Computed example of a mutant assay.
Amino acid sequence: MTQVTSAHGKADGSGLPQVPSIPLADDRAIAAAGEQSIGHLVKDATAHLSTLVRAEVELAKSEVTKEVKKGIKGSVFFIIALTVLLYSSFFLFFALAEMVADFGVLRSIAFGGVFVLMLLVAVLFTFLGFRKLKSLRAPERTIASVKDTAAALTHRGDQQS
């Protein structure tokens, strides 16, 4: 079998990994075409189909892996930004408590009130998060499609009469 890569990969090993492929022309098959039986041709076709399916799965895996890695690298910057934002929010709430204290409220009551406000916001977003997580479902269309494909490949000889 020959080894090929996608347009993003190089044959020297850098880029995407090599995946098996079906050769466009097999010299042995052309030379022995008159000598092969139907069973041997079916065996070759099945082997080529199996190789094709494995190559497609391998290509999909390598492309998805590449995209996931890029996504993870990009999300690191968002995580850093979120961390800085969370630490800086301390100063916002501290300033809010001082502002409330400037209106004549005792400092301890002002800071306690801001703390209770922060707890209420945290409880609200926790509730919204749980509500969103409860709506998650399995990918039913994908599961059904895979089952249909498996059934079609398993029972492909049963339909011939």
Rank of each mutant, 00 (worst) to 15 (best):
F130D: 04
A81T: 07
L49R: 03
L153R: 04
A144P: 00
F103E: 05
T83W: 09
V53H: 11
S88C: 06
G34F: 10
V68W: 00
R141Y: 09
T149Y: 12
A7T: 09
S37I: 10
S88N: 09
A81Y: 07
F111C: 01
E35N: 15
H48D: 11
H8I: 15
L128G: 01
M99S: 11
L16N: 08
L119K: 00
R54M: 03
G113K: 06
A29N: 02
A32R: 14
F90S: 03
V84H: 02
A33K: 05
V76D: 09
V105A: 09
S37G: 13
A151I: 14
A151W: 15
I80Q: 01
A33V: 05
D26W: 14
V53W: 00
R141L: 12
P17H: 11
P20A: 14
P139H: 10
H48T: 02
V84C: 06
S108D: 07
Q36R: 05
I109G: 01
L82T: 13
V4M: 11
E58H: 04
F111H: 10
G39S: 04
A31Y: 07
S89F: 14
D12S: 09
S50P: 00
V68C: 08
Q159D: 03
K134C: 01
G15E: 06
A101N: 08
T51E: 09
A60R: 12
E140K: 01
V68K: 06
R54H: 04
F111K: 04
A11W: 15
G129Q: 10
